[in-house]
């Protein structure tokens, strides 16, 4: 069964087309990664599924039911982990989870057990009576997840759930996502961290300018990029590198600079490595290492959208 299905989904904000005739299917049981730069349409899609935005054209089905016809069914079966931490700082962790779970109709013993399960799941059972305003960023993120899963939703939507947290909490959250999936929930996961998407998602779509521009498993997406070479050049200092001049070299498609590593994506059929090396040496930029890289998701994304994921 399809957990989510978009049928020619269109959403506009004035002149801006946020989602443009999008068709999409997410199978039940998947961890589905949504990749796209800011403003690509990810949040719009998520907000439509959750019922926070109205559909202009097309249809959205959740577990086979059109969301406008049966919004209560959809809402009961969805748990949303919003990008912004959405909890009450002055209510205890237990009270937070209990409040949100009670809005889904949980009562009495069932509510108590569900709240305890959710807090245990995110590793906050010892902090149940403490106020989240005193929590670390990672603990708040985990509580943010607990509030979304206490009512045991079949579909969990996680919108950038690991932003701004320490590696330990991030690992805990990623393991939680996989565990939730093992327990039977379908997950929609958006992140700016490509390595997270690579590590946990069973299927990924890349969305840009309101359109799905690629979809598949990680391997399927990487196989799309067969016509490019990626060269990673480690330099002493990136000061003085002119991206525009580098892009003028025949065959160079995209450049990404981070720390002291320059990633250059070139057309496979153009032999331009000597010219690239010459650019660095003639500009007195010392080269420490040169290596060729097989395409990864980051390369796929950069190639398809012309932008880095964190642009």
């Amino acid at each position: 069964m399809k957990a989510v299905r978009f049928e020619r989904l269109t959403k506009r904000f004035g002149d801006l087309v946020a989602l443009d005739n999008v068709n999409l299917e997410i199978e039940e049981g998947e961890i589905y990664g949504f990749l796209g730069p800011n403003g690509a349409g990810k949040s719009t899609a998520i907000n439509i599924i959750c019922g926070l935005l109205k559909i202009d054209k097309g249809n959205v089905y959740v577990f086979g039911k059109e969301i406008r016809r049966d919004p209560d069914f959809t809402k009961r079966n969805i748990g949303i982990v919003p990008q912004d931490i959405a909890i009450y700082g002055d209510l205890s962790a237990y009270e937070n989870v209990s409040f949100f779970a009670s809005l889904y109709g949980l009562r009495g013993k069932e509510l108590k057990e569900s709240v305890e399960m959710a807090l245990k799941f995110v590793g906050l059972e010892d902090k149940a009576r403490e106020m989240p305003k005193n929590f670390s960023g990672g603990m708040k993120r985990r509580l943010n997840i607990a509030c979304a899963i206490a009512h045991r939703p079949k579909l969990v939507i996680m919108d950038e759930p690991t932003v701004g947290i320490d590696p330990q909490s991030r690992n805990h959250i990623l393991e939680s996502v996989k565990e939730l999936n093992r327990m039977g929930s379908t997950i929609i996961y958006t992140s700016h961290y490509m390595e997270e998407v690579e590590a946990i998602c069973t299927k990924i779509s890349i969305i840009d300018h309101g359109k799905i521009i690629a979809e598949g498993t990680k391997e399927e997406l990487e196989s799309i990029i067969t016509d490019v070479n990626t060269v990673m050049i480690t330099v002493g200092s990136v000061t003085g590198i002119n991206e525009g001049k580098l892009k003028e070299i025949n065959g160079v498609r995209n450049i990404e600079i981070s720390d002291n590593v320059v990633k250059i994506i070139s057309s496979k059929d153009v032999n331009n490595l000597d010219k690239i090396i010459l650019y660095f040496t003639s500009n007195s930029i010392p080269i420490k290492n040169v290596e060729s890289q097989t395409p990864d998701l980051e390369t796929v994304f950069l190639t398809l959208t012309g932008r880095k994921l964190r642009d």
Partner: peptide
């Protein structure tokens, strides 16, 4: 400001 309003709205409330 706490972003909890939309969270409530995503529930069947």
């Amino acid at each position: 400001t706490k972003k909890t309003g939309n969270r409530i709205l995503t529930s069947p409330t």
